[in-house]
């Protein structure tokens, strides 16, 4: 593998997308939302120690869960199929570069865009929190940022895979939107329906929620849930905000594996299909 080719393609992908109006808009929205939450939570909310920042981090996590996957999908869905439709992919493929180098370069370049775009929001919010909170644990905040990057990279890998495999840009966009809808909106509902249909579960308010293992495994398979669990089990004060007793396998290693799997498997699938595709 030629590291220089991967780097050149990553650099071009960064420059190209950094000037994309939609990405700039999304980064701005992310900045504003996280700033509002961090200000409201850290300076206006009661308490001033790190232990009390849990609610603020939980709020920021909600924004990330909603917005970062959208940014990731928007970055990736047209990365290959868009170039194919415009004609620049035909030119790129005539160069002495392997198809997997193109995929990797694009993945790294797009991930850098997402990392930089979200770092602006995280950075400014971090300053606000730091100014208003004593005993600020930057390591914990760093873990939160790192986890947020991982969920973003997973969604970039997924949309990049669709982009490499599908024939039309509109199809890739549609599938990406459906995927977001599946994970962000209806995943838990589907599981609950399956639960009620197959087990005898008491869902009335006040009753203790006890679900079989398969339910918890299926719930954790959702990358967004894995992300939230990863943050929850690591950032002390936040975990109180996740309801119910978490199963023991809801841990850092397992959630990391889930997130990495959702990144590596789509990229592998993209490679297998893209390497033999007629362009």
């Amino acid at each position: 593998m030629d590291g220089r080719a991967v780097y050149s393609i990553a650099k071009k992908e960064f420059l190209d997308n950094w000037r994309n109006k939609w990405i700039i808009a999304m980064a701005a929205i992310f900045l504003v939302l996280t700033l509002v939450i961090s200000y409201a939570g850290a300076s206006l909310g009661g308490g001033s120690g790190w232990q009390d920042v849990g609610g603020t981090i939980a709020g920021m996590m909600t924004i990330v869960t909603f917005l970062i996957p959208i940014i990731g999908l928007m970055l990736g869905y047209s990365a290959i199929v868009g170039e194919k439709e415009s004609g620049s992919l035909q030119l790129l493929l005539s160069y002495p570069v392997h198809r997997y180098e193109i995929l990797l370069g694009k993945f790294f370049g797009l991930s850098s865009v997402l990392a930089f775009a979200s770092l602006i929001g995280f950075g400014v919010s971090g300053v606000v929190i730091g100014l208003n909170v004593s005993g600020m644990q930057w390591g914990q905040y760093g873990v939160f940022i790192g986890a947020s990057f991982l969920i973003g990279f997973a969604y970039i890998a997924l949309s990049l895979c669709f982009s490499a495999v599908l024939q039309k840009r509109s199809t890739a966009l549609g599938v990406s939107v459906l995927l977001w809808f599946l994970f962000a909106v209806i995943w838990d509902t589907i599981l609950l329906v399956a639960l009620v249909a197959t087990e005898n579960i008491d869902l009335s308010p006040g009753a203790e929620f006890v679900a079989p293992t398969w339910y918890h495994v299926a719930a954790l398979a959702n990358p967004s849930t894995a992300y939230q669990t990863l943050v929850a089990v690591n950032i002390g004060p936040v975990s109180a905000n996740i309801a119910g007793d978490l199963p023991s396998f809801y841990s850092t290693p397992v959630t990391l594996i889930v997130l990495l799997a959702w990144t590596i498997v789509p990229l592998l699938a993209a490679y297998i299909v893209f390497r033999k595709k007629d362009i």
Binding site: R4, K11, K12, D16, G87, L91, P96
Partner: peptide, 23 residues
């Protein structure tokens, strides 16, 4: 190629630099 296309957001200079690096 017949209907050659490039990247709208890059300048001519940046475009040539990209392809120069690849070769």
């Amino acid at each position: 190629p017949e209907k050659v296309a490039f990247y709208d957001n890059l300048t001519g200079r940046q475009t040539m630099a990209f392809y120069a690096e690849l070769r």
